Simulated scan of single mutants.
Amino acid sequence: MYVYMNGELVPKDQATVSAFDHGFLYGVGLFETFRIYNGHAFLLEDHLQRLNKGLSDLSIKKNFSKQEVMAALSLLLEKNGYENAYIRFNVSAGYGEVGLQVEPYEVPNVIIYPKPLPPAGNDIFEKKAQLLTIKRNTPEGSYRLKSHHFLNNIYAKREIGNFPDVEGIFLTENDELAEGIVSNLFWFNEGTLFTPAVETGILNGITRQFVIKLAAKLGYQVKEGFFKPEVLETADEIFITNSIQEIVGIKEWNGRYFPGKQGKITQLLFQQYRQYCLLLSSKTELDKEV
């Protein structure tokens, strides 16, 4: 497998960064994960908008255009022979001396990691949801970045173990619903779609934003807010989202069973999602005819 590194295609076992990279030393770096569907990078513009804002906030002097990234992806996918892939787009701060740096980072390291995926099918996945005892840490700044700082998530994954059919659900320090280890949380009840507010400290996932807009387009009321975990007990359906797993039905929570992938709203949103994943570069295009 080849990775894209600073403008070059490099065999994965030859891709290296300096031991003085501040992404390694201090976690100063960001990443985005998204899917390639038959060569199309779904919601790429939204991912880059979030990435570019985060880089500016971290004083990493880099800004990515859609054209630049698509050119890199095209080279990478062709070299590896992939038409459908998982992409991790990684930007670390780059070289710096030992010690905390206040000056901007001028030469970041840009690495794009691909993994092959099968063509997207029409089957919805489902999982069990497990309440975590470890709480969601608060963001380091005014909002949560998709950064290299991932220890809270790693501890959470260790708590539930290596079970791919289980997603751990974080609570905030105030015992309110937050998000999954690698997902955002939704539930449907009496005609309304609910999800924790960004102000709880969760990552504002790109798929989360798309599903909120998609549900509203379909005529559903969407409420973001602060919720205790007990509200899930009376939910009609629960599902989680992320850019790789898409929309995943939850079939069990706290000893109670739910429709999971059989949920009517979960299925409807997934079917709509599947129609758009080959077409859209931004959620704003939902407002246009495609």
Rank of each mutant, 00 (worst) to 15 (best):
V211M: 05
E237K: 05
Q245M: 12
Q267G: 03
E246L: 00
E190S: 12
E233P: 05
E252G: 09
F188Y: 09
N184R: 07
L269V: 03
Q272C: 06
A215M: 09
Q267M: 10
F239P: 00
G191R: 14
L193N: 01
I250Y: 02
F258R: 05
V211T: 06
L280K: 02
Y220L: 10
Y273H: 08
T241M: 04
S183E: 05
V211K: 04
K251C: 13
E199Q: 13
F226N: 03
Y257L: 13
G191E: 08
S243T: 07
Q271E: 05
T192F: 07
I250H: 02
Q275D: 02
G201H: 13
I206P: 02
T192C: 12
W253T: 07
A235E: 03
T200A: 14
Y220H: 09
R208P: 03
P229G: 14
L218W: 05
A197I: 12
T200N: 07
K213H: 14
S243M: 05
N254T: 13
F239M: 04
L185D: 01
V222W: 02
N242G: 03
G219C: 10
L269W: 01
V211A: 05
T284M: 10
I240Q: 00
K261S: 09
L269Y: 01
N204T: 15
I265Y: 00
G255Y: 06
T266F: 00
L203S: 02
T195K: 03
A216S: 12
F258S: 05
I238G: 01
S281I: 11
I247W: 01
R256K: 15
I206Y: 13
I244A: 02
K217W: 05
G205M: 12
P196L: 08
L203H: 06
F210R: 03
F258N: 05
Q267P: 02
R274A: 05
K228T: 14
G219W: 15
A197S: 13
Q271F: 01
